[in-house]
Structure formats: C-alpha cells, structure tokens
C-alpha cells in the first residue's frame, strides 16, 4: 500500500512537472515535491513505519523515484530556459535599418585643417611657426620691404589704411622683418601664417580677408635651387606624389630674383580647363631670394647672408582640392558647408 502511494505520487509529480512552464512554476514544483517539506521527502520519512523486511525495497524504490524526478526536473528546466530565451530573442528583434542615435560631432574649420597640413609639412623641413601682427605699420608692410611710398609696386596690393602709419597687413611678408630683427644673428627657418586683408569687393572669387603662409629661410648659403627644391617638396607632399611643378620668373619688390611656382592643374591634369584658364597650370606660390635691401633691413649683411622667401595661399589650395567654387563659403561660416570637412 505504501508502494502504491509512492507510485501514485511519482505519477502526480511527473504530471505537475510537465505543467510547469516558467522558472517560478518550476521552483514551486521543486519546493512542493522535492523540498524539505515536499511530498516525496514526506514519503521518505514514512520508511520508519514500514515492516523491517519491506524497508530496503521501499528505500531503493524511493531513491529511484527521486533520481528520476531530479533528472526530469533538470530536463524540464532546460526546456523552460530554452523557451524563455527563444521568446526573449523573438521579442528583442529590431529593424536594424533604423538610424542610430545621432551624436553632435564637432568639426575643425577647413582653413584650420589646411593650415595644419601646411605646418606639418614645413615642420618636417625644420620650419618653425612664427606669428606677426595683423594690424601692421605701413613702414613694415611696405617701406622696409623695399616698397617706398608712391612706388608703383604699391599698386599690387589694395590696402585698408587705419591712419598714416597703420594698416591691415596686405600680406604676411612684414613678418619677415620682425622675425629677422628678433633672431639676428641666428640662421632662420620659419613659416608665418595668418590673416591678411585686401581692399577687394567680396565675390565668389575674391575676399577682403584671407589667409597666407609666408616662408622665410636665411642662412649663409641659401640658394634659388634650395627654394625651388623646398617648394617642390611641399607641392609633392601637399598635393600628391605625382604632381608636376614648374617655375616661372616673376616680380616682387622684396625678392630678387623673383619666381612663381605652379603645379599642373588638379582638375584637368594639365589639359586645360576654366579653373586653370586653359593653361594647364595653377599658381601655388610667389617666391624669390630675399632682396638685399630687405636682408639689410632685417639686420643681415647681404654679402654674408642669403635667404629665400615664399608666400602660399591657404583657401585656394583647399578650394582646388575639394572643387569649392565660392571663397565666401570660408568666412561666411555656413555650417552646412563646414560640417563636411
């Protein structure tokens, strides 16, 4: 009769286990059947009431039942977990094409990025960045650069004047005098970046404010070939390995001899297009050997020292590189434009 009860309980426990569908139900099943006060445990305690000779068989059977139920429980628990996982995964699926949470990403101004590229290239060649004033003396912007008052060369720059002495620098070249006067008698290798100003109407092609990077090297044996070599290296590194360059004679009052350096047109590769005015070439720098008068004005004896200087545009190379047609986009600060860089 005890055996009958055991077998009945065993069947009941199996049925109850099959009905448990959640981890919570499994846990209550375990407590109800297998716990300290559980039904199977209660049966085990009844073993004392059995006749002595029946006890081993009952004990053996009850252990079998317990083991079987434990095993069934483990199997059922695994099933329930798998079902729960399957359901969780099914419910957690998303439209993976939905856009991610947008971040507010900052951008450096295109001019800053271009300047940094230029700094990095010249730093490799030993050029230090030196900054000079934007509101400058006419004396430094012109006179000391070998451009006396009323000299025709002054026509090359349309100038914003503040008063008889002060102006907004029309080029970064007056910095040449400042760095020479500060550094004499050291040799010099500097670049002088910054804003310059010209009295020009603002159009797609001209701005009254733009950036230049001046370069100056002064030493005992600096030559035109060094200048051409330095600018060739710059062009190669800035515009790309396969760019060609050419050097033309030119005129600047503060260099003698004066040159301009061109690179083959980035857009048409030298075949001729509206951007290069059908010449196949784009001007990238005006340059030359520092004029003896300028060296002298900087404190360097032109019989012992020589030097080269160059002036690079900043916006134009960026415009060429990205095909930007309108220079006003730079300082008009249209964020729709600036955020693309």
């Amino acid at each position: 009769m005890r055996f009958d009860e055991l077998e009945r309980r065993y069947e009941e426990a199996q049925a109850a286990l099959a009905r448990a569908e959640t981890p919570e139900a499994l846990e209550s099943w375990r407590t109800a059947w297998m716990g300290r006060k559980g039904a199977i445990t209660a049966l085990t305690r009844q073993i004392r009431d059995l006749p002595k000779e029946e006890r081993p068989a009952f004990g053996q059977r009850i252990n079998e039942v317990k083991a079987a139920l434990e095993a069934a429980y483990e199997a059922r628990a695994a099933e329930v977990k798998a079902e729960a996982l399957a359901q969780e995964l099914a419910e957690g699926a998303v439209d993976i094409t939905l856009p991610g949470r947008p971040l507010n990403v900052g951008h450096l101004h295109l001019t800053t990025q271009t300047l940094r590229e230029i700094y990095a290239i010249f730093e490799r060649m030993g050029f230090e960045v030196y900054e000079a004033p934007e509101v400058e003396l006419g004396y430094y912007n012109f006179d000391l650069l070998n451009i006396p008052p009323y000299h025709p060369a002054r026509d090359m720059w349309d100038t914003f004047w503040v008063d008889d002495d002060l102006l907004l620098r029309t080029h970064t070249s007056p910095g040449q005098i400042r760095v020479m006067r500060e550094r004499y008698p050291e040799p010099i290798r500097v670049i002088l970046p910054g804003k310059v100003y010209r009295y020009e109407q603002i159009t797609a092609r001209s701005e009254h404010q733009f950036y230049q990077v001046e370069g100056l090297a002064v030493g005992r044996h600096i030559t035109m070939s060094d200048l051409i070599g330095t600018l060739t290296e710059f062009t190669r590194m800035f515009y790309g390995e396969h760019r060609r360059t050419r050097v033309r004679g030119s005129y600047f009052p503060f260099t003698e001899p004066s040159i301009e350096i061109d690179t083959d047109c980035i857009l048409c590769g030298g075949k001729g297009c509206p951007v290069c005015k059908y010449t196949g070439w784009l001007e990238i720098a005006g340059a030359g050997m520092v004029h003896p008068v300028v060296l002298q004005n900087g404190g360097y004896d032109p019989d012992e020292w020589s030097g080269f200087a160059f002036g690079l545009g900043v916006e134009r190379p960026a415009m060429m590189k990205y095909g930007v047609k309108d220079i006003r986009l730079f300082y008009g600060n249209d964020l729709r434009f600036l955020r693309q860089f």
Partner: peptide
C-alpha cells in the same frame, strides 16, 4: 628656371 636643380637647404638647422 626649369633647368635648375631642386635641392634642399644643406646648412644645419637653426636653434629649434
């Protein structure tokens, strides 16, 4: 100028 060699400055660097 197209016949010029293209060299880099041979002198020692100025004080850095």
């Amino acid at each position: 100028y197209d016949r010029f060699p293209r060299t880099l400055i041979a002198e020692a660097l100025p004080p850095l």
